[in-house]
Design a protein around this nucleic acid. Sequence first.
RNA 1: GCCCCUAUCGUCUAGAGGCCUAGGACGAAGCCCUCUCAAGGCUUAGACCGGGGUUCGAAUCCCCGUAGGGGCACCA
Length: 493
Amino acid sequence: MQPVRVRFAPSPTGFLHIGGARTALYNYLLARQTGGSFVLRIEDTDQERLVPGALENMLAALRWLGLQWDEGPQVGGPHAPYVQSERAALHRARAEQLVLAGKAYYCYCTRERLDALRTEQRVLKRPPRYDGHCRGLSAAEAAQLRAAGTPAVIRFKTPADGSTTVTDAIRGDITVQNSTLDDFIILKSDGLSLYHLAAMADDHDMGITHVIRADEWLPSLPKHALILRAFGWPEPVWCHLSVFRKPSGKGKMSKRDAAELRGTEGHSIFVHELREIGYLPAAVLNWLALMGWSYDDQKEDFDMAELVRCFSLARVNPAAAAVNFEKLDHFQGVHLRRMPVPLLATELAPYFVAAGVQADPAMLERIVPLIQERITTFEDAPPLAGFFFRASVDCSSADLLVKDKTADESAAILQRAHALLAALPTMQHSAVNAALTALAAELALKPGQLFSPLRMAVTGQKVSPPLFESMELLGREVVLARIAAGAQLLQAL
RNA sequence: GCCCCUAUCGUCUAGAGGCCUAGGACGAAGCCCUCUCAAGGCUUAGACCGGGGUUCGAAUCCCCGUAGGGGCACCA
């Protein structure tokens, strides 16, 4: 395949979400695969909707995912500027060029008239469309309005009849009757271009060969094709990706859904939050890649290099996919288990700090093998392994009881274990295992009967990393102290 | 209201006329392993939206329904 020039063109009106990330990923993959270029362009022509911090958020999220752009903000490139608002003069010139060519015209209709028109059409159950009022203005009328300083927009002259056919790479030909389109605005009265013109002009100027974007643009695709044709510009390969649906399969994700997700499930649709929770970029990438694209009927485990090698537009699925976070967790597990221990330890360290425990780096590195296959996200680590670093643990006395035994009997059993471990020549886990297993047999207890209360005493948890390995890492002193404390707690009952 | 897109297990998907008594993955259930929890191994349940065509033959092609999604701004 020839080197492509693709672009990801987000609008800085919010945080980067998984839908945008997947669009960026597919673009990136195609660029890398063909030795082409991945352009990042910021579409900020709607100054009113800009959200402070959104741009920074997107750049950081893209970088975290490893989707480094070849041209764009912060890195520059031969087609700078890459921020659309800085290209306003270019867009304006294009709009005027179209007017001169008789393919667009100035429109002086007020918003009031437009609103009234729409309301009327709504009442009549007619599609809301501009009625072409200013298209028929005589030169004299137009000149008069202009002289009076009447605010004007520029509208594109859509052919009244006939149809427009555009080809989408994954959906085939799409044909719409031109009568269903109206004379849409391409330049606002403030002189800034609307998306339709700005995006097409920039795509052309930047030499974009493939436009891979969200499905929501499909209805306006004919407008874009019309603009391109009006200029006589070549069309890129179009590829419209289906939007993601809620996990329930119903509808698009809303802000409210997003908040709920973060709070109750520990998941998120925002890339930066996924990062905060402690997901691996490799897992997010693997997950996203497979939502709407597949390689074959077997392979699902991909790293970035493999994705670059295997990706193809032809295998992108046109149907909408519901977001499935269980699958994310699965990929997270796959990639997490594959991570080198020292690296995982380094990544985990800040999460312990955030949880209020000082985790000694050397100790953490010894603990990681015990928890690596027991955690999903980094956030899961402190609750599981925080007991290694705390001075003492809080035990629930109920769980300190040996099953089917009284408190006193349980305390006595704990004391037996205490004495045994105190006398053991080594705290090496297999030795601890052997000794404690023998003790259980001697006391006619099932292993679990003895180990459960011990686990509670030593870790303060009903669920923990392997007990004997944990004891070895904790050291005899700490283990004995905690068992003694547990026994004491029982006696106080 | 109008326009566009989509339609295989609960979910993500494989399938591009016979290889399909429809394959894989997540999730679920069961078993094994086992000090808890995981991880791992094995097994099971589970789908071609409906109706018409075309064809010797359709999950695959066409049409009509239906359902879901998206769009119809001086937003992107």
